[in-house]
């Protein structure tokens, strides 16, 4: 099992989750682009405007 393979202890103050920040930044950009596409292209560009 994986739990036992700790090669170094990292405490709270010495840990900056920079990989997490990078990953979640990528997610943020994907969300933004997809939202704009869904709302303005798929929805507002779709046939029959409801007024």
């Amino acid at each position: 099992m994986g739990e036992e393979q700790v090669v170094r202890e990292i405490g709270h103050d010495e840990y900056d989750p920079k990989g997490t920040l990078a990953l979640i930044g990528v997610y943020f950009v994907i969300l933004l682009v997809m939202w704009v596409f869904m709302y303005f292209v798929e929805f507002l560009g779709n046939e029959l405007t409801v007024v």
Binding site: F43, N46, E47, L48, T49, V50, V51
Partner: peptide, 28 residues
């Protein structure tokens, strides 16, 4: 109305009111 934004629920006892703009002739 298939493939369009005209999409609603119909509930007995209630009246669904939905206004839609039609442009080109055709069939949906």
């Amino acid at each position: 109305i298939v493939g369009t934004n005209a999409n609603a629920m119909v509930v007995p006892g209630q009246v669904t009111e939905l206004t839609v703009e039609f442009n080109e002739p055709g069939e949906y």
